[in-house]
């Protein structure tokens, strides 16, 4: 169930600032189960669901709906699209990839001149993003303008593949995995009352979460994320950050947040008591909505519970399916603990 939800969510397009398709889908799923639903000018979707008990503290779970992608900045006279990034992308992962542009999902490819025509120097360096282009097969500017517009967002290829010993490849696992966990929770009986914030624009600076936290005003928040795994050959020790197959990730800090020690200790205890493997990040890298949620209003206790993702911010994110399921399992245990 969790995996089906994750795969469905990964196929939807929701580049930062254009999360509508993801929000519409989630809204349809949670509508029959929610006790209160709010949206706001940033496009956040906030869902409240009553549980068996009402805990002293107001609890908020948080996952972002947006994904990294591209944004069309101009159209050339001969019908090619110039673009910039929406969210942090290593430009090495977009060259020669398929993308889908705008609401019409127009197929395009990020082209580059053939390797045969490059100099040895050019083969070693990547073109700057401003020198790359998307080819949608338009013969000139006028034909291109009939299908796409400046400001259109472009998302990566949405094919999902399960492979190897329990792995899944998809775009946008960061952070549809957190969204999937929250959808599954909303559709189940909860041990205690809980708010769920499906936020927008995390990848461009946690802009959605900034206002969602002010709207919900939680005392305590768990950020559910997909996080950077660098566990590939050639990377040693701490440089690997976290490893697929070593369990859910409970970071002590990242570039935006020093996480609440007591909250984190509770999560670690619950994981260990229930046989759920966990790890921490061995490098201070990346950030989450936790940074703005923690400093919202008079302050919030915040912890993060993440899934390790290889090739994050690329069209070919890879996660271990059992660890996506463990994220859901550990959040359930946490809510049960809060009900005590």
């Amino acid at each position: 169930m969790m995996l089906d939800t994750l795969e469905t969510l990964c196929c939807l397009e929701g580049v930062s600032g254009g999360e509508d398709e993801v929000r519409d889908y989630i809204l349809e799923r949670v509508l029959p189960c929610a006790d209160e639903i709010r949206t706001d000018p940033l496009g956040n979707l906030m869902v409240f669901k009553k549980g068996a008990v009402t805990p002293e503290k107001r609890i908020m779970l948080c996952a972002h709906m947006d994904e990294v992608g591209l944004i069309v900045t101009s159209i050339t006279e001969d019908g090619y699209l110039r673009f910039d990034q929406a969210g942090g992308i290593d430009r090495r992962v977009i060259i020669g990839k398929k993308v889908f542009v705008g609401p019409g999902r127009i197929l395009g490819v990020v082209g580059s001149k053939a390797v045969h025509m490059t100099t040895a120097e050019q083969r070693k360096k990547l073109p700057e993003m401003r020198d790359m282009f998307i080819d949608i097969g338009a013969k000139d500017k006028a034909e291109a303008e009939k299908q796409v517009h400046i400001g259109d967002l472009a998302a990566f290829d949405d094919r999902v593949v399960r492979f190897g010993d329990g792995f899944v490849k998809a775009k946008a696992i960061d952070d549809r995995v957190g969204c999937a966990t929250m959808v599954e929770l909303i559709e189940s009986e909860l041990p205690c009352d809980c708010w769920f914030a499906f936020t927008t624009q995390e990848e461009v600076g946690s802009r959605g979460a900034t206002v969602a936290a002010r709207s919900i005003q939680p005392d305590l928040a768990l950020v559910l994320e997909g996080t950077t795994a660098a566990d590939i050959p050639g990377t040693e020790g701490a440089g690997r950050v976290c490893l697929l197959g070593s369990g859910v990730v409970l970071p002590f800090m990242d570039r935006g947040t020093i996480y609440d020690k007591d909250l984190r200790a509770t999560l670690i205890r619950l994981a260990e008591e229930n046989g759920i493997s966990w790890q921490t990040k061995s490098m201070i890298a990346g950030g989450t909505d936790g940074s703005v949620v923690q400093r919202s209003g008079a302050g919030t206790e915040v912890a993060a519970l993440s899934v390790a993702v290889r090739n994050i911010h690329s069209p070919a994110c890879v996660a271990k399916i059992s660890e996506c399921e463990d994220q859901l399992k550990l959040v359930r245990l946490f809510l049960a603990e809060m009900a005590k």
Partner: peptide, 17 residues
């Protein structure tokens, strides 16, 4: 596989692997 951009320098990101 490739490294996450979060742990790379701008210099590293501009070079073909």
């Amino acid at each position: 596989d490739t490294m996450p951009p979060h742990v790379l320098t701008a210099e590293e990101k501009s070079k073909a692997i």
